[in-house]
């Protein structure tokens, strides 16, 4: 075998080179010498000093991170599986409804308004997360570069859109039955765009991609989602009781 190159020795040092080098090093003094020189250099790099952190470092980091975490928790995570989140929303709305009713029946001051408020809050949190997710998927499509060799694979966005359509339908129906027409109408418009995405082939041609983009951009849907999201956040903040 020829002498080992510097690159081979570096790879060998990091355990990314076959036994071949090891065998060669055993039999070749010259290469052994250059390997040892390399070892000394790379071992000395380990002396790079990193300042010590105090004993309570972990706790300190957590305290600061926790303060900055997004406030809505449980539903945000559920929203990864949009349909599960929407179904959970149905459950929560029922809970809120029955909680409101038994509260009334137990003789406390009956307040349909309070009941409605709880339900609206639950809906707003869920819709906020739904919009965030929708925005991500649509933005990815709107900003995707032109397909290089013919077709662009949008199967990921598509599967996401299919899930979102289902969830969107449930939120829309919930909003409508809660008498929140504005939210219901907005979700109706969003649903049409999501359906479009879901119904495309998973490989789109430049022309089809162009149509999709026009559908997203032409309706100004991303902008509307943004506006609506911030409204939702405000409504949520206004009802600032903790969620769940």
């Amino acid at each position: 075998m020829k002498h080992a190159t510097e690159e081979q020795l570096v790879l060998y040092y990091y355990g990314e080179q076959a036994d071949e080098i090891q065998r060669h090093l055993e039999s070749c003094e010259a290469c052994r010498g250059s390997y040892q020189a390399l070892q000394r250099v790379l071992n000395s790099v380990d002396s790079f000093p990193v300042p010590e952190r105090g004993a309570d470092y972990e706790t300190r980091v957590w305290r600061e991170v926790e303060r900055r975490l997004p406030r809505r928790r449980a539903l945000a995570w559920l929203a990864w599986k949009p349909l599960a989140a929407a179904a959970a929303l149905g459950g929560l709305m029922a809970v809120a409804f029955f909680a409101g009713r038994s509260w009334r029946e137990s003789g406390a001051k009956a307040s349909a308004a309070a009941d409605l408020e709880v339900r609206e809050r639950v809906l707003m949190v869920a819709v906020g997360d739904h919009l965030e997710r929708t925005q991500t998927v649509l933005a990815e499509l709107a900003n995707s570069g032109d397909p290089k060799n013919g077709a662009l694979d949008i199967s990921y966005e598509q599967r996401a859109a299919e899930d979102l359509v289902e969830a969107n339908r449930l939120y829309r129906e919930t909003a409508a039955s809660a008498g929140d027409d504005r939210t219901a109408n907005f979700l109706d418009e969003l649903e049409r765009v999501l359906l479009d995405v879901a119904h495309n082939p998973s490989q789109v041609s430049p022309g089809q991609l162009q149509d999709l983009r026009q559908e997203i951009e032409g309706r100004g849907i991303l902008f509307k989602v943004k506006i609506f999201s911030s409204e939702v956040e405000e409504r949520e903040a206004a009802q600032n009781a903790p969620v769940l």
Binding site: V50, P51, R53, E58, A74, L75, L244
Partner: peptide
């Protein structure tokens, strides 16, 4: 657990990895 909505579970991950992330960042 975090995904299931247990906010406290994230604390475990933060505390477990914070020192190592600091070392990496410093390097």
């Amino acid at each position: 657990r975090v995904r299931a909505g247990d906010g406290n579970a994230y604390r475990v991950l933060v505390e477990r990895h914070s020192r190592a992330v600091f070392r990496l960042a410093y390097r």
